[in-house]
Nucleic acid binder design. Structure first.
Lengths: 154, 154
DNA sequence: TATTGTTATACTCTATAACTATA
DNA sequence: TATAGTTATAGAGTATAACAATA
């Protein structure tokens, strides 16, 4: 278990994490937008939809993107404006909604994948494969901790 | 050097990184706002100001927060509305501006520090000290790579 | 009644572009 | 002319709260 005794060390770690994440996210978002006309969040939604049978509920997407349902509503609205997909009531159980990408959405996703690959290669450059695997492990822990923290404090 | 051959692996890593960072940042922001009435970015600005002699230029803060100068202008506007600090022309060379926290800003920073400590402890829980140190090292590399990537693609 | 999702509203943050002021 | 900073404007994203629809 990490045991940090000096306040300054804690703050430095925290600030470094926020700065690194912000820098990497801004870089990724700017590159995506410039080269694939797509925000990172829309890319992730398209990719998640594509790997989950092509259709998901808003509540599932909210879980995946660490946000609330009403934010998915507005996000899908914007994606519909971009003609990347649409939301449709599930006719069997009309409480539910199916969010589905269309042909343009899948085409844009395909175009964005190489951009994602370049971004990852850039951000991960000079990091050994072992370190990358460890980083992946640590990121999963951070994500889980942030998630369970959210529930605790809510 | 990392050498990833399978597109799915790359995408998974990329998406995991974005999701982890988003989840941690949202958790931190929500906790900060609820408990210290402060956004993470404002906390960082106050902390950076406090550890840099109490006064900095907009361009320096922009560098620190991975953003552009005009965003610092509006951020400091909002901080002035919160009565956390102010921006003043440097009278010796009127091209420059000094951003300075006031008493309330420093008090709010002090109140926010324990919140930051709790957030870090939550997000970093179950991570060993060795792993934390390695994470810190990797984050620095990611931040640097994102930064140099930005310059290259701009 | 509980759950799913939407709407209204306001705010933070960011990006682009054009601008002012100073040295 | 180059640099520092501001302003105007627009848009993405998020949070709160209230609401509608469905089972």
């Amino acid at each position: 278990m990490i045991e940090v005794n000096h306040e300054d060390t804690i703050l430095r770690t925290f600030i470094l994490f926020v700065q690194s994440a912000n820098a990497a996210l801004k870089y990724a978002d700017a590159t995506f937008f410039r080269r694939a006309k797509l925000s990172v969040i829309k890319f992730i939604v398209l990719q998640v939809l594509a790997t989950n049978g092509g259709s998901m509920k808003p509540s599932e997407l909210a879980e995946w993107t660490s946000t609330e349902r009403h934010n998915i509503t507005t996000l899908v609205d914007r994606m519909a404006q971009d003609e990347l997909g649409r939301a449709q009531r599930n006719e069997r159980d009309r409480r539910f909604v199916n969010i589905t990408p269309n042909d343009k959405g899948m085409k844009v996703l395909d175009q964005a994948k190489p951009v994602a690959r370049e971004i990852v290669n850039q951000v991960m450059s000079s990091i050994s494969e072992n370190d990358a695997l460890l980083l992946e492990k640590l990121l999963k822990v951070l994500k889980q901790n942030a998630h369970s923290g959210s529930s605790i404090y809510r």
